[in-house]
Design a protein around this nucleic acid. Structure first.
Lengths: 144, 144
DNA sequence: CAGCATCCGCTATGATACTG
DNA sequence: CAGTATCATAGCGGATGCTG
């Protein structure tokens, strides 16, 4: 997640450069740069969570603020803007008082949640293994 | 990438609850803490890059240092140790002079590269769309 | 309510030098 | 070669207050 400030995140440049380097979308080998760029986009925890939450339906700002416990206004705002910028979610303002704004995942965004959820599923499926591995490793290390 | 040992899964219990809730569609109603920590691990750029690189075959330390674009010795060392700790890669030392160490993805690690590559594929497939979206968004914002 | 702007601490990460 | 130890720093992300 990039800084707010004035001009929109000015340094998404690296990920962009990286994506450019790969050229076409045909068959993607294990290009390190691509992996990196993907993670830059959706790898941060709030993007993941928001994509996941919004996948179930439109939500308002404060609603998201409440539902994603631990997120700050700042990060929610920032993250939503980035997601909107990438065309993954839409922002709809209702001219009412008090103001109401709803965020919704775009069809494009839904194509993303698929692989993202696949990863989450992997994490869930192998949660136990990882935990065990860590314990074993830590214990072995502690025996020195 | 957190330092080995302690330090990671000690916070963000709230966000974890969220991940669980959003996981309704995918069976990820497991321990949110570990889930988060796993996603953190999987989510950081160097881990993914290394998993991707090593997926093609065993590699030596310096070899990885050269191949992974921009990684520092420190991060390579740290990341490899964490991957090893999670049982995703193995570290094999050859008693030679000069010393040689080879890292290799475990079968367990290979189950991870699958979803990872799915994500990478998504990035490749939608690279153009994202860049176009960003350009459009930035330009629209600049008209104010 | 939605959401910027400001201040700021923390830590993840890079650069460098040293060791076995 | 394969790391480790140390230092310095950028920028992520939280807290808060202000505005429309």
């Amino acid at each position: 997640m990039r800084e707010p400030g004035r001009g929109v995140m000015s340094h998404q440049t690296e990920a962009d450069r990286v994506l450019r380097s790969l050229g076409h979308s045909a068959c993607i080998e294990h290009d390190p740069d691509v992996l990196r760029s993907v993670l830059d986009r959706v790898g941060d925890k709030w993007s993941l969570i928001l994509i996941g939450l919004l996948d179930k339906g439109p939500m308002r700002f404060t609603e998201l603020l409440r539902t994603a416990p631990g997120i700050s206004r700042r990060m929610l705002s920032l993250t939503l803007r980035n997601l909107e910028r990438d065309g993954l979610v839409t922002r709809k303002v209702f001219p009412e008082i008090p103001p109401r704004v709803e965020y919704e995942v775009t069809p494009f965004g839904r194509t993303l949640s698929e692989p993202v959820l696949a990863l989450a599923r992997w994490a869930a499926d192998h949660e136990g293994t990882i935990r065990a591995n860590r314990r074993a490793f830590d214990q072995a290390a502690g025996l020195d």
